[in-house]
């Protein structure tokens, strides 16, 4: 079977949707040279009316996309650097995502915000390595974080077809991931549906983004000693609580590997929900970035603050050592 890379999957999903639906168009910076490679060849294929080169006006062009969406188009806004999602946080969360409700359901805002290289960038330092998915989830914006090429294809496709604003973050560390894919299997993936990458019986290991691959490696490493179920929510908001409940109902143990900051990050939400609602036999654990992580530019100062495979493995082992609440 042919190998499909994650980046190529994003490219293909966007291209297929633009082929399928003329209302879809893409806008962003350095589009004329497809700097992120997501839109390679698009200018020739679709023309400058559907591949819009934007000036460095992120707030302006994010609002522009809202306007185009209110007028019936389906914009895909590409951002090159994750902090730009913070710059346009107001335009996404306070405007695009509120207009449907504020209009009493009259008009939705079908914009896709595509950040094809989110998260940790070794050596790029403090303002280029953010991973803001928990913030959008906090504000109730549909947010997806595909970990594999097929999920990248399927979730970007669904995001573009969805009638609401959707943030799509492709972790930088995933862009090179390749997968054997039969192109017939490239299909839309529903929002809000998690995926069990490895079935297991001892512990549910929730992992997001590139940490899914670390979690799978941990599950493989520990196989024989510990049966680890690797749970990839794929969509951060809405989260697949039903599938989590089913998994934890079987394992009774929970570890979360979350690429966001510890304080109020996705991991905090998963643990809080599990504590309130799920039949945990032992206290859960999470592995995340530190509280409010700001990374230095030198890779030595950066890597030490990122969640690692070893930390995830340690967390898994430690919940297996726990004999129970209060013991």
């Amino acid at each position: 079977m042919p190998k499909l890379s994650y980046l190529k999957a994003l490219h293909r999903a966007l291209r297929d949707e633009m082929d399928r639906d003329e209302s879809v168009f893409v806008l962003g910076e350095d589009m004329n040279f497809a700097l992120t490679n997501t839109t390679s060849g698009f200018l020739d294929r679709f023309g400058a009316d559907r591949v819009l080169e934007m000036p460095l006006s992120e707030q302006g062009f994010t609002n522009f996309a809202t306007g185009a969406a209110l007028a019936g188009r389906r914009p895909v806004v590409e951002f090159q650097i994750p902090f730009l999602l913070l710059l346009v946080f107001e335009q996404i969360t306070n405007q695009a995502n509120k207009f449907l409700l504020m209009s009493g359901g009259q008009r939705s805002v079908p914009v896709t915000y595509l950040m094809p290289a989110g998260g940790h960038r070794p050596g790029w330092g403090a303002q280029h390595s953010d991973q803001p998915y928990s913030l959008f989830a906090h504000m109730g914006v549909k947010t997806v974080l595909p970990a594999t090429p097929t999920d990248a294809y399927g979730l970007l496709t669904t995001a573009i077809r969805d009638d609401d604003p959707v943030v799509v973050i492709g972790p930088l560390a995933c862009l090179g991931v390749r997968e054997d894919v039969d192109h017939a299997d490239l299909v839309p993936v529903p929002l809000g549906k998690g995926r069990i990458h490895r079935a297991g019986t001892d512990v549910t290991l929730v992992a997001t983004g590139h940490l899914v691959h670390e979690a799978i490696a941990v599950a493989d490493d520990l196989a024989g000693d510990i049966s680890v179920e690797v749970f990839d929510p794929r969509t951060v908001y809405p989260f697949d609580w039903d599938l989590l409940a089913e998994s934890v109902g079987r394992t009774g143990r929970l570890v979360v590997a979350d690429d966001t900051n510890r304080f109020s990050g996705l991991g905090a939400e998963v643990l809080a929900t599990a504590a309130e609602e799920l039949p945990l036999r032992v206290p859960p654990k999470r592995v995340s970035r530190p509280d409010g992580a700001v990374v230095g530019a030198a890779p030595e100062l950066d890597a030490v603050l990122q969640p690692t495979r070893e930390q995830i493995a340690d967390a898994v082992r430690s919940v297996l050592k726990e004999s129970g609440w209060g013991a």
Binding site: G60, N63, T66, G67, L70, E90
Partner: peptide, 25 residues
């Protein structure tokens, strides 16, 4: 929307680029 009043954003000044997007469409 029946009168084509698309919105009144509470974020002062931010309607200008929304207007540009509607105009472009």
């Amino acid at each position: 929307f029946s009168a084509n009043v698309f919105n009144a954003t509470g974020t002062v000044g931010h309607g200008a680029a929304i207007a540009a997007g509607i105009g472009w469409a």
